[in-house]
């Protein structure tokens, strides 16, 4: 029950808080321990192969008990007129872009959680609900979640969505890399249904090799860039494209892990009592200046 666990959480925080107070600040770390497994899995999305059939959208909804409708209704391509984002009703969506080469062979881009190797959501989650699992998926514990939505703000890809329309028990929604399916040895629902295998499921290390090989064999077809190989420190889902990724609404991101940036700023500010020291220094400075002025004024009067 969420209520019960929240109480549990508050209890544990109180205990931890008391413990931390006695320790020095250097031992406390903001990010929970999430070990990156060597054999963590990933998906290589080849946008040049994707045909935009949107079967993955249907399979995803079906696998996550969301209202999905009939499979053949996804043949409707009019949805491509506007760019969609994953949300609470659809954890993955396919958008269509002009390929620039052949107007009748557009580029179709599936969007979902990228399952970062150094996830900002995991780092930002104040209750430790988020975790990077051994198989590469970034999942969260709904029972722990308090709905603070820090994960939404932290995500560099703006993926997590919140069920604002639900009055009771609203939760965070995002792609969970079909954690329940892969646990049983099944493929993620989208990977399993894709008729052209535009989504290749495998270990991240092997996928990078395969992606490189594809670029090497078809240098005219692909741009020499595997999106997600280095972006924000690497992601489990990686993309190949025939067009620059900035033209496909991919955010332009550095290679530094997203939590690294926010963590270093936070830690920098709070290390060595910087805020209180600087506050007192500032106040002291103001006092000194006003006192000095006063003295000068009095001298002038004399």
């Amino acid at each position: 029950m969420p209520g019960k666990s929240r109480r549990d959480f508050l209890k544990t925080t109180a205990v931890i808080g008391a413990g931390v107070a006695g320790l020095s600040s250097s031992t406390a770390k903001a990010a929970p321990k999430n070990i990156l497994s060597e054999d963590r899995m990933g998906v290589l999305v080849d946008t040049t192969v994707c045909v935009g059939c949107r079967n993955c959208e249907w399979a995803c909804k079906t696998a996550h008990d969301l209202p999905a409708g009939e499979l053949h209704s996804y043949e409707d391509r009019s949805v491509f007129t506007e760019k969609r984002r994953p949300g609470t009703k659809a954890l993955t969506v396919v958008n269509e872009y002009s390929s620039g080469k052949n107007s009748n062979l557009p580029l179709d881009v599936k969007v979902q959680c990228m399952h970062c190797d150094h996830p900002a959501c995991v780092s930002a989650c104040i209750v430790g609900a988020f975790s990077k699992e051994e198989n590469g998926s970034v999942i969260w514990d709904t029972d722990k979640c308090i709905g603070c939505r820090y994960c939404m703000a932290a995500c560099p890809f703006q993926v997590p969505a919140f069920e604002y329309d639900k009055a009771i028990n609203p939760s965070i929604m995002k792609c969970d890399f079909c954690f329940n399916r892969t646990k049983e040895g099944k493929l993620p629902a989208c990977v399993a249904i894709c008729p052209v295998e535009a989504l290749t499921y495998g270990t991240r290390t092997e996928l990078v090799k395969i992606a490189r090989e594809r670029i090497k064999r078809n240098p005219d077809k692909y741009v020499d860039h595997i999106f997600g190989e280095y972006e924000v420190g690497g992601t489990a889902w990686m993309y190949l494209s025939s067009k620059d990724f900035s033209e496909l609404d991919f955010p332009k991101l550095g290679t530094n892990p997203a939590p690294g940036v926010s963590e270093s700023i936070q830690h920098g500010i709070f290390a060595y009592f910087v805020p209180p020291v600087s506050l007192y220094a500032l106040l002291g400075g103001i006092m000194w200046i006003s006192k000095h002025r006063k003295e000068l004024d009095e001298e002038g009067k004399l």
Partner: peptide, 16 residues
């Protein structure tokens, strides 16, 4: 996984 599976291979030939 370096080559597509049979279903994907068939589909890629036709759908493109």
């Amino acid at each position: 996984i370096s080559k597509p599976d049979l279903e994907a291979a068939y589909h890629r030939q036709c759908i493109t």
